[in-house]
């Protein structure tokens, strides 16, 4: 396994550290689900490196284990076996509270189904991770306003999810994912529920975030969207098929 991976695309961003830094490092990670007496191995030995500042597209057929992989990356779940280092920390050894803090500060999730709190306004939805991080109310107000205007929703702060379009909801979700300035954005088919036009808007938002230095892992069915990434990981039957450059 080549641990000293060279970032081919890092030169645009000046930060020396980010150029060679590995942010996600999975070694022979397996995940099995147990349904009654039947055990199903959704991931069958994943070795995967993601460098700081990378934009990775993940593709694969339905049921291949993409979401499972992403949940592991985001510490929403832990591997059955194998080792996962996130920013050099062994995730397997983390306590539930540490995992919660990682989800709060280090990673931001964007889901296909948006997963906003249905009765809360856009503003309140974006505020939730800040509440969990114990940010003061004055800072929260500033931060939420800044995030919502960054995703182009400054005028929709008081809208509830039911009063917004899919694209708008997903932009709220992205703002929420960015709330505590995480290093990594994990997106699971973020355009899956959107028409192509709002889908493109979302993807260009990811491009912007990428330009700004965020590490992005994005699952998608759509090859055209996957091509926004610098690299594509193909998964099939719980195994990585290709793990390389677009070419």
């Amino acid at each position: 396994m080549n641990k000293i991976a060279v970032n081919t695309n890092g030169s645009a961003r000046g930060e020396a550290k980010s150029m060679t830094d590995t942010i996600i490092d999975m070694r022979d990670v397996r995940k099995s689900y147990r349904t009654g007496k039947v055990s199903f191995e959704a991931l069958k030995g994943i070795d995967c490196l993601v460098k700081r500042g990378e934009f990775v597209g993940v593709v694969g057929p339905s049921g291949s284990g993409k979401s499972t992989l992403m949940n592991l990356m985001g510490c929403l779940d832990i591997p059955t076996t194998g080792e996962y280092y996130l920013e050099g920390q062994l995730v397997n050894k983390m306590t539930p509270n540490q995992l919660a803090d990682v989800r709060n500060r280090t990673v931001g999730f964007v889901f296909q189904a948006f997963n906003l709190l249905p009765y809360a306004t856009a503003y309140e939805n974006v505020e939730v991770p800040l509440l969990f991080a114990r940010v003061s109310s004055r800072k929260r107000r500033e931060r939420v306003a800044e995030l919502l205007s960054r995703v182009g929703l400054a005028d929709k702060m008081a809208n509830k999810p039911t009063e917004m379009s899919g694209g708008e909801m997903q932009r709220v979700a992205i703002a929420r994912a960015l709330a505590n300035e995480p290093d990594i954005i994990l997106a699971d088919e973020p355009t899956g529920n959107l028409d192509s036009k709002s889908g493109e808007a979302i993807v260009s938002l990811f491009d912007e975030l990428h330009q700004a230095g965020k590490t992005i892992v994005m699952i998608t069915h759509d090859m055209n969207i996957a091509k926004h990434g610098e690299r594509i990981i193909r998964i099939k039957d719980g195994l990585i098929q290709t793990n390389g450059d677009l070419s």
Binding site: L76, N97, A100, D101, N104, V128, P129, F132, A133, R176
Partner: peptide, 16 residues
Amino acid sequence: TREIGIKMAVGARRSL
């Protein structure tokens, strides 16, 4: 449960 899941996904500790 979904709402609880969402809160956990954005960093709520179980104790919270």
